[in-house]
C-alpha cells in the first residue's frame, strides 16, 4: 500500500512537471468551436431543429413534454417574473434605478451576457452586472443563486424573449483566456465520480439518468433563470452549476468565481444565434 501511494505521488509530481508544456498555446477560435458544437448536436439529433434546443429535455421525452405543456398553462415562474419587474422598476434610496446602470434602460439586453469587461479583464454575467449596479448605488450585493436575484433576472431575461443570443469574445488576450478557461472547465472531469460537464451533457445527452433526461449542452443556458420543480423555486445558471458539481461529489466553486464566470461565458457563447427563452420551467 505504501508502495502504491509512493508510486501515485511520484506520478503526480511527474505530471506537475509537464504542466507547463501541456498548457502550450493551442489556437483559440471561438467561432469555429461554436460551429462545431452546434453542428455536432444537429447531426446527432437530426429531428431537433437548432432553435428547439432551448427547450432542453422536452425534445427527448414525450411524457416530460406533455407535463410541461400542462404546467405552462400557469407558468410556475410567473410570480418571480412579476416580482422581478416591480423590483426592477423601484427606485433605489438615492433616487436612481437599475435601468440607469444598463444600456437601453436594461430592456432587451440579456442576450448580450455574459460580457467581457475590458476594464477589469473579467467576465461579467448579468447577475454580476446587477450586483455591480447595486453596489454603485450604495446597496448590498444579492445572492447570485436564487431569491430576488433570480426574480430580477427573470424579468430582464423576459424582455429579451426570442432575441438571438449574441455573446462576444473580443480579440483581447484576457477575453480569449477566459473563454479558454471556461472551455477547459466544461471538458475536464472532476469530483470523486469523475465526470465532466461534457460527460453528461454531450456524451450522454438525451439519455436517462434515473427518470430524468440529460439535457444537451446546446441550448442549456437559454432558459435560465428557471423554475425547477425539484427546487420548488427559481434558480440561476450558477445554482445549476453548483448542483452539478455536488452531484459528481465535487466541492462547488464560489458563485462569483472566475471558474463559473468563464464557464458561463463559454457555454453561452456556444448558444449564439439561439433564441433567449427564459425564464423557463424544468422538472
Amino acid at each position: 500500500m505504501r508502495l502504491i501511494i509512493m508510486a501515485l505521488m511520484g506520478a503526480s509530481f511527474a505530471l506537475f512537471g509537464s504542466l507547463a508544456s501541456a498548457r502550450a498555446a493551442t489556437p483559440i477560435n471561438p467561432q469555429a468551436d461554436m460551429k462545431a458544437f452546434q453542428g455536432y448536436f444537429l447531426k446527432r439529433f437530426p429531428k431537433v431543429p437548432l432553435a428547439a434546443y432551448v427547450n432542453g429535455p422536452y425534445n427527448f421525452s414525450k411524457s416530460e413534454a406533455d407535463q410541461w405543456k400542462q404546467i405552462m398553462e400557469f407558468p410556475p415562474y410567473q410570480f418571480a417574473l412579476d416580482t422581478g419587474k416591480s423590483v426592477f422598476n423601484t427606485k433605489f434610496p438615492n433616487g436612481k434605478d437599475y435601468a440607469s446602470c444598463f444600456p437601453n434602460g436594461g430592456v432587451g439586453i440579456a442576450q448580450n451576457y455574459p460580457m467581457f469587461d475590458p476594464k477589469t479583464g473579467r467576465v461579467v454575467t448579468l447577475g454580476i452586472a446587477i450586483n455591480r449596479c447595486r453596489v454603485a448605488n450604495g446597496l448590498k450585493k444579492l445572492k447570485l443563486t436564487t431569491g430576488p436575484m433570480a426574480d430580477i433576472l427573470a424579468y430582464m431575461t423576459s424582455t429579451s424573449d426570442g432575441k438571438p443570443i449574441n455573446v462576444v469574445v473580443p480579440n483581447n488576450p484576457k477575453a480569449l483566456a477566459a473563454y479558454r478557461a471556461g472551455k477547459e472547465y466544461f471538458y475536464s472531469r472532476r469530483g470523486q465520480l469523475n465526470f465532466s460537464c461534457a460527460s453528461c451533457h454531450v456524451q450522454e445527452a438525451g439519455m436517462h439518468l434515473r427518470g430524468n433526461v440529460l439535457a444537451p449542452a446546446l441550448g442549456m443556458t437559454a432558459a435560465f433563470p428557471l423554475y425547477r420543480s425539484k427546487w420548488g423555486n427559481m434558480g440561476t445558471l450558477v445554482r445549476r452549476f453548483i448542483g452539478c458539481n455536488k452531484k459528481v461529489h465535487s466541492v462547488p466553486a464560489k458563485p462569483d468565481s472566475a471558474a463559473y464566470r468563464d464557464l458561463a461565458y463559454f457555454l453561452t457563447y456556444m448558444n449564439n444565434g439561439l433564441p433567449v427563452s427564459g425564464p423557463g420551467a424544468r422538472p
Binding site: I4, A7, G10, A11
Partner: peptide, 14 residues
Amino acid sequence: MNLRASMLGLSLLA
C-alpha cells in the same frame, strides 16, 4: 510512469 503506477495499484488491489 503514470500508467504503470496505476496498473500496479490495480493489480495489487484487484
